[in-house]
């Protein structure tokens, strides 16, 4: 089972972004690392110049570098950036908006979790078009993942296994709106919330997370308990999405469970302690409401609502 670190989705300080990747290069037992701006093109200029040196450092450490494209492409400059990434990249490109496909000219590429691959016919079509790897949408249940993994043996299937699930993307910036600004004059207020901004219900229930134009879950998806199932299905890789907790420690836990060094339950305990105070969920994988967490298997009893480990 490979481990792929997804791109940082939040607006981190450039030096923090760079140093995080250096530490990942040096210490994290992952096979691939995705870098690139997926959420908001306004953020890209701040760390764009660091991408080549970060990519080189990761590659020297034996990590495969994947360049992730923007998820919602609407502006002309975004279209040009996406086109140039697709045409000129030295590394595998992960496509997050269908528009990138017209510029890939059949070259091998990856499909990211923001492109809708729900069934085997679409998977086969994209594979025929040059997709060698697909990270599935986080809302897909195990039953669908099983069919997809079996249907195209030549395509690597990645499943979202850790981190807040991206639930929606918009033209409107919710961070700006909260500060009574708009996307055009946002003052980059999203930078104040490096793990996203908690958005609770009026009754104080933890529910969603705002990250600029993106809305994510409050819970961190955590499929550590399902790694044996994922392996049995033929899933190639776990997609681990960076949060502000110790991601080196998180990837080590995933590595140990995937290699059978520790049991999944031990892995879950370890992650609970690394992500102190955070609730986990696996509802999407279990075919239920995404916010739920269902421990173990067997009797199908649902877990302790949205909370708990």
């Amino acid at each position: 089972m490979r481990l792929t670190l997804g791109p940082v989705l939040y607006n981190w300080e450039p030096s923090v972004w760079r140093d995080y990747h250096y530490r990942i290069a040096d210490e994290a037992p992952v096979d691939a690392v995705c870098i690139g701006e997926v959420v908001c093109s306004k953020r890209l200029p701040f760390f764009q110049d660091m991408i080549p040196e970060v990519a080189e450092r990761l590659a020297r450490a034996g990590k495969e570098v994947v360049l992730s494209s923007l998820a919602l492409v609407t502006l002309e400059r975004e279209r040009k950036q996406t086109a140039s990434l697709a045409r000129e990249a030295d590394h595998l490109v992960e496509v997050n908006d269908i528009s990138a496909l017209v510029h890939l000219a059949g070259r091998p590429h990856a499909i990211g979790p923001y492109v809708n691959v729900y069934n085997e016919a679409t998977l086969k079509w994209l594979a025929g078009n040059g997709a060698c790897r697909v990270c599935l949408p986080p809302e897909l249940p195990a039953a669908s993942i099983r069919v997809l993994a079996e249907s195209c043996p030549g395509v690597d299937i990645e499943v979202w296994s850790f981190g807040r699930a991206p639930l929606a993307i918009s033209a409107r910036c919710y961070h700006a709106r909260l500060h009574k600004l708009s996307k055009d004059n946002c003052q980059f207020v999203c930078g104040k919330d490096p793990d996203g901004l908690a958005t609770d219900t009026l009754d104080g229930q933890k529910f969603l997370t705002v990250n600029g134009v993106q809305t994510l879950s409050s819970t961190y998806v955590n499929l550590i308990g399902s790694i044996p199932d994922l392996q049995a299905m033929g899933v190639s890789s776990c997609r681990i999405s960076p949060q502000t907790c110790d991601m080196v420690a998180v990837t080590k836990v995933f590595r140990d469970v995937a290699d059978g060094v520790i049991r999944p339950e031990q892995g879950r305990e370890a992650l609970a302690s690394i992500c102190d105070g955070v609730s986990f969920s696996n509802g999407f994988f279990k075919g239920q409401a995404g916010m739920l967490f269902q421990p173990g298997i067997a009797n199908g009893a649902s877990g302790a609502g949205m909370t708990g480990v």
Binding site: A165, L167, A168, L208, T215, F284, G287, A289, G290
Partner: peptide, 10 residues
Amino acid sequence: RCSLSSYATG
């Protein structure tokens, strides 16, 4: 491209 509803309801 929206999973808000399935997050809360499945």
